[in-house]
């Protein structure tokens, strides 16, 4: 059989393959370029960028849990000006797709960043992280309220020149309502899941393992939750879904695509093995060959009862 067509199209943007690296686990690509050739990746998602530098939380920010990790980094970032001046020039020369993740404490902060990125060359897609704690909503993530999600999506679209992916928090009762709100607001795609809120207690010291008490759970332990949510979201909307949550192997990636993902994103696995994204790309191709599939995009939503 001839080679597999590995290309996928997300919101009109063609990626050479469906494998993306997740925001917050890949910097802006530079650090992992010491390990792998970034031009082989479908896309790199740069770490979340705010309108001004964010300090993040105090240490300790990391705790290991069985099959995963908790983090409370607190979205430390240098702000959009430094990103544009220092990080983007490197990333746009890397030869992979470029997704820029946007964070904010309240809606206006998102719009300022999106507006600043408007028309900037070398950014293929924006990813709007609506899992950040919203200051005006008493720290509740704005991504938990469908009406707010729809409004923020609509406004981001108004300011953005690039297609917008809304990145969903899993810390909701019904992910379908949030996915539908994104689509209603004009989102070009959605990505999920962000990390699941968790907690670890150090029983010897009888205190919290993380400075922030709670943190985001990620890694292979969240994968079944993520697959279920990708499935539910993909059945609800007609825009593309980017699936993520604990992907460690090509088999995991296939599972997300069968559940309805058009592309997949690698997060914590980068920390454990920087070569995982390349192994997933190669493994996806091998899977397609083994199953007589001509184009990897045929996997999307192909699960049947």
């Amino acid at each position: 059989m001839t080679d597999v067509n590995m290309q996928v199209v997300i919101a009109g943007v063609t990626l050479k393959n469906p494998v993306i690296t997740s925001s917050g686990t890949y910097g802006a690509g530079r650090e992992y370029s010491e390990f792998i050739d970034l031009s082989r990746l479908g896309a790199v998602t740069a770490k979340g960028i705010a309108d001004v530098p964010w300090e993040g939380n105090p240490a300790p920010r990391i705790a290991e849990v069985s099959g995963g990790m908790l983090n409370c980094i607190g979205l430390q970032n240098p702000g959009v000006d430094v990103f544009l001046e220092r990080d983007l020039p490197f990333l746009r020369e890397a030869g992979c797709g470029v997704i820029v993740n946007v964070v904010g404490h309240e809606p206006d902060e998102y719009y300022r960043v999106v507006d600043r990125l408007n028309g900037v060359q070398g950014i293929d897609l924006l990813e709007i992280n609506i899992s950040c704690p919203n200051v005006k909503a008493g720290g509740l993530a704005l991504g938990t309220d469908p009406a707010v999600v729809e409004e923020v999506t609509r406004n981001c679209k108004r300011y953005a020149s690039q297609p917008c992916i809304m990145k969903l928090t899993p810390n909701v009762t019904d992910i379908r309502a949030i996915a539908a709100a994104c689509e209603a607001g004009g989102a070009d795609a959605i990505s999920l899941i962000n990390s699941i809120t968790g907690m670890k207690i150090d029983i010897e010291r009888q205190t919290f393992a993380l400075s922030n008490r709670t943190g985001g759970l990620s890694g292979p332990c969240v994968k079944p939750v993520a697959v279920r949510m990708v499935y539910e979201a993909a059945r609800t909307v007609s825009i593309p879904v980017i699936g993520m949550g604990g992907i460690m192997t090509a088999d995991d990636a296939v599972e997300f695509m069968l559940a309805g993902a058009s592309a997949v994103s690698i997060g914590m696995a980068n920390f454990i093995d920087p070569y995982v994204p390349l192994k997933v790309i190669d493994g996806l191709r091998d899977y397609c060959i083994r199953h007589g599939i001509a184009s990897v995009s045929e996997l999307t939503g192909a699960v049947h009862a």
Binding site: G24, G27, E31, A59, R61, I62, A63, P78, N270
Partner: peptide, 25 residues
Amino acid sequence: RMACGVGVCLGCICQTTGIDEHSHV
């Protein structure tokens, strides 16, 4: 405590007296 060990995750920060080069905090 570290996660990535290569500078991407910002898990292992320490407080500095001046503005740091990476995040400008």
